[in-house]
């Protein structure tokens, strides 16, 4: 128990600097990116490999969750069909803020080789994307690098509550 009395609220003597809160929060956020299991096609296999023991995503704090309510990262791994577009939007809306999206592979980026009536030509037509991963399919190392880039991005952001959610429109 301190001998002296400090009225923190009145004297402006808040013992923690705001930048430090930012850093602490961002340290927590960037090292516990829980990802939504979202394998849509062959890229999903590479995503699973990244989570498994050889590449071991757990050491980055990235743990795959089966529920959007426990996740803050959506790795869209694979071909998004037009039929599925509304579901990906619904799952994205169910994730809690702040949330990030990695679009993995050519299919998710641009529709890839599926230049047909049934494929969405890029997930960014439906949800806002933070990181695009080129490749068909990108190797697990590439996905790991993407997660590290995302960590850098998160560390640059302000942890303030006033942070504006990303919107397509």
């Amino acid at each position: 128990m301190a001998q002296h009395q400090v009225n923190y609220l009145k004297d402006g003597g808040l013992p923690v600097a705001l930048t430090t809160i930012d850093k602490v929060v961002n340290w927590g956020r960037s090292n516990s990116i829980w990802a939504l299991t979202y394998g849509l096609a062959c890229c999903g296999i590479e995503m699973m490999a990244s989570g498994a023991s050889r590449y071991d995503f757990d050491r980055f704090g990235t743990i795959f969750r089966a529920s959007p309510r426990q996740a803050e990262l959506m790795v869209v791994a694979g071909t998004l069909t037009k039929k599925h577009a509304e579901f990906i939007r619904r799952l994205y809306d169910q994730m809690t803020e702040p949330k990030w999206v990695i679009s993995m592979g050519s299919c998710a980026n641009t529709g890839g080789m599926f230049n047909t009536y049934a494929t969405v030509q890029g997930v960014d037509r439906v949800i806002p994307v933070d990181l695009y991963l080129p490749g068909c399919a990108p190797r697990p190392e590439t996905l790991q690098y993407a997660v590290m880039m995302l960590q850098q991005k998160i560390r640059k952001e302000s942890a303030s509550r006033a942070q504006k959610p990303k919107r397509l429109m």
Partner: peptide
């Protein structure tokens, strides 16, 4: 087909 997902979602 070209506008299906946009029309439906937004």
């Amino acid at each position: 087909a070209a506008w299906y997902e946009v029309d439906k979602i937004f």
